[in-house]
Amino acid sequence: MGAKSDVETKRWRRQGDTLTVYLAGEIDHCQAERLREEIEERLRDASVRCLRLDFSRVSFMDSSGIGMIIGRYKTMTARGGRVTACALKPPVDRLFRMGGLHKIIAIEEERCGA
């Protein structure tokens, strides 16, 4: 049980200059504010050049999630870095398209690092 729950609760991974965030649950206004603070805290480390957002465990997102992602995109591009996203489920993918995020963020099909 221990190993399995470790995998399920993994939230961050650092590999080289890439920070992967394993997002989970429902990204609404309430959760987006918490995520913004947590991710910005990790991005204080200026050696992070690529922020990868893993959506494989995200079941819902609304416009607050779009705002949170655009905010992190601004943080990363200001330092010459980039943001990528992966494992978008159809409802989240639809929000990505409606929010124009496909135009600024590279989408990977597979779960990040899987």
Binding site: A32, S63, S64, I66, G67, I70, M98, G99
Partner: peptide, 14 residues
Amino acid sequence: DEERTGLGFSLMQS
């Protein structure tokens, strides 16, 4: 400044 997108009503209408 609070990362609001201005997309709320657009999504409701969509």
